[in-house]
């Protein structure tokens, strides 16, 4: 089926990808790099946490179905595929950490460890993405719920909100 879609002979596929696992690994790596690059392109101009979050969801929404599978199956995938997922996460954590640490320093958001700030966001996004058929059957969960998730998360970051400072 892949060979037909690619317009190449069946044997040609096996020259490049001797096993099914090799083919899957190549697809994951190629797609993962594409997502990370897209998120980076969208978010690199962001100067606030809000702009970074919006860009993150916009980038993921373009690859939502693939990303959902990658997150759900990530722990079962071989190390190189897990590194691909981590590469996507690192692309956004790099940008988010930069602006969030600045906003914490000037008091725009409350102080907290950078990793908890990032993981709270990622946990929220991944829960909705992994259960996309419950939250937005047949559609994009990030388009439907993205603005609500951003609003809720930003409310948790506001200086008046208490808990988790240590």
């Amino acid at each position: 089926m892949v060979d037909m879609a690619a317009g190449v002979a069946h044997g040609t596929l096996f020259v490049h990808f001797p096993t099914r696992d090799d083919l899957i690994a190549a697809v994951i790596e190629e797609s993962g790099q594409r997502i990370a690059a897209r998120i980076h392109d969208l978010a690199r101009a962001g100067t606030t946490v809000h702009e970074i979050l919006v860009a993150h969801l916009e980038g993921l929404a373009e690859y939502e179905a693939f990303y959902a599978r990658l997150v759900m199956e990530g722990p079962l995938l071989p190390p190189h595929a897990q590194a691909t997922l981590l590469g996507i996460q690192s692309a956004i954590s790099w940008l988010l950490a930069g602006v969030a640490e600045h906003e914490m320093a000037v008091g725009a958001i409350r102080p907290m460890p950078t990793h908890l700030l990032f993981n709270t966001w990622l946990g929220l996004v991944h829960h909705y993405v992994c259960n996309r058929e419950l939250f937005a059957p047949g559609g994009s969960v990030l388009e439907r719920w993205g603005p609500v998730l951003i609003d809720h998360y930003e409310a948790l970051l506001r200086p008046g909100c208490k808990g988790g400072e240590q």
């Binding site: 190390p79 981590l86 590469g87 690192s90 950490a97 460890p113 990793h115």
Partner: peptide, 22 residues
């Protein structure tokens, strides 16, 4: 990775090795 994502140091180093190999 340890600072921004809270990943265990040994696990982070292993992931970095996977990334750098590519």
């Amino acid at each position: 990775m340890v600072r921004s994502q809270g990943i265990d140091e040994a696990a982070a180093r292993k992931a970095v090795d996977e990334m750098m190999a590519k």
